[in-house]
Design a protein around this nucleic acid. Structure first.
Lengths: 197, 197, 197, 197
DNA sequence: TATGAATGAGAATTCATTCAT
DNA sequence: CATGAATGAATTCTCATTCAT
């Protein structure tokens, strides 16, 4: 007993994320994580010194993933559609992303370090979307609102819809997201000068 | 030793809600609630038979409050302004409402009963807002979208902004909510005006 | 399951002291204490919030006992004989007192609160013995040494002998303590003016 | 990866002794020792097969050191002064020796092997001091007590004073040890002088 | 030799829950 | 109704020890 190198940190984080989605972050125990990863509890403590550290690493991992998606090179125009489509897919059968995200948000309400990390990513997402909107429209697509504000509202929309989608049985996902797409397209087709390609 | 009627159920629920906001729903213990309400743990068991029932009652209480707000008689036009203003005030100094709401949402992800209750209220809110929009506009204020969809999007916006406001240090609350008000007013003043136009 | 008032704090402390003597303070676990007291571990936490608090209470209890012995009314002359005899009896078959005492001393080396408590009792014992010596002899019984110093040396002698007695197999307890008694009596019989009765 | 001869057993024992003095024998862990010696935990297991053996080796090392001091060639008369002076210096700024000694004594209360080892050294110290007293005085320096008993009492005095010195804040070290020296000198200068006279 | 990942037994501690008063 | 002592299961965490490299 003591086989070396049976798991990596990444595998443990993955197992932990699954546990959160499966049984709720309030029920996340290291016993469960260890079981899911097929290692002993001690192993978890060898990699993360405390449960809090593991949770911080889950946040870190999730944030890094979001950031990677963001940086994914793509021409600006398709960016928003891609975002919408990915958001939609996340809501349906595979709602795990938003479950995890919301769980981390709630836990971070009483953990400044987590809050800082998540907050910084959300801010970065707003800024990235702002940049993209600026590429698409010389003037803001919505009268009277700055590009930055439109970006904030769009990102808020995604998160707010995720909540409704998670909570409301038979939420009309398809319809709403198609409407959103229509809305966004109406920006793009609108008579405002289009700049970036 | 038995002082009668020292506390009411409502007081205990209030205490529990405070505990959630102060130390996180993941740290909600009956000991804490009892301490905050200045009663013994046993007392809590006389009012709620289990911890889960207490949490269900918190949800119930929170939902009923939302519903009461909704039913509050007021002419349709001012409804949205009132909603926006209240949403805004909830985000700034007194963010506790949204903290509580999000916490309950996350917990309910693994509690069907809670999920049903919260989901039904969110659905009702969508429907109520739909009704109001129908009162205000013969046709939907946003081209191509049904009244119901606009309602969903507006409500999603509120929740999504709440998250950003809770997570992002120095989130531009004032600016964003004024923009939102501008946006909504542009609906009201100009029937049939396209959102993006 | 939950029979009220099955144990008192005093009983738990007694059980803990027995555990220390039986298996060493370095092996003191709350599981053991609970088992010895026939209660659950939770019960121990109901009375003492932490293990450290329990240990502080053991110290407190032991110190209070020492102090009570000290205050025990007795004419000064017999005091020392009584002390010697009790010290001796503590060393032989019933060495538990000194085992406990030394264990607490060692633990307290890294616990200021415990150290303060034990230190204050030891100081008080020195002072009490000084007072008694002053009652017995106008001038110090040992040439060139103050009453206080003689008291310190005598008390040190007791502790030092306890260690030897605990560690050395077949330590000549009888012989040494009779010698000590002879020595002390030689003080009393000496040509120095005797005062108190 | 295997650097040869990075540490010697002696270095590990030294590290362990430091750990005991710094954080208490009850908190001695192999992790701590390894950290202090800048080696891995595995390395400790190459030198000592178990934690208990490490502790036995600490005892062995400490006892051997005492014994070495004892054998140190010196004329009998100065022996006692040297002992007193070294004892005194051990108590003040550098109290670590007695901290370690007492810790080992307490642990050995429930480890026969350690007890035997420490006991044998204490006995040897008594015997050596007896021999020295016999060299100095034809008859015992204290009327009615054998040389052996006086030796035991003197050694007990050293240990007992060490405890007081460790526990009592502002223990009058200087004064007491000078008194002790006066006392011992009174033996040496006046053969046959009665201690109490 | 030396390493350090892995282990499992057991430590302290928490907590929902029960029950006699 | 209200209390609070008692419970036991579960949780976080520690640590001596093993073993493949």
């Amino acid at each position: 007993m003591a086989k070396p190198n049976v798991v990596t940190k990444a595998q443990l984080i993955e197992a932990a994320k699954q546990c959160v989605v499966e049984s709720g972050i309030e029920n996340l125990t290291l016993r469960t994580v260890a079981a899911k990863a097929n290692v002993s509890q001690g192993t978890i403590y060898h990699h993360f010194q405390t449960k809090e550290r593991l949770m911080l690493d889950i946040v870190e991992d999730t944030c890094r993933a979001s950031w990677r998606d963001l940086q994914d090179p793509a021409d600006a125009e398709t960016f928003i559609h891609r975002a919408l489509r990915s958001a939609q897919s996340r809501q349906g059968h595979d709602s795990s992303f938003h479950q995890l995200f919301l769980s981390l948000v709630v836990i971070s309400l009483h953990n400044q370090q987590m809050k800082d990390r998540i907050g910084s990513v959300m801010k970065a997402e707003n800024e990235e979307l702002t940049r993209i909107l600026q590429t698409l429209y010389a003037e803001s697509p919505v009268n009277g609102l700055s590009h930055a504000t439109v970006a904030i509202l769009l990102n808020a929309l995604i998160d707010g819809l995720a909540i409704q989608s998670l909570m409301i049985e038979q939420f009309p996902r398809e319809e709403v997201f198609q409407s959103l797409q229509v809305l966004v397209e109406s920006f793009i087709r609108s008579d405002h000068t289009r700049m970036g390609g």
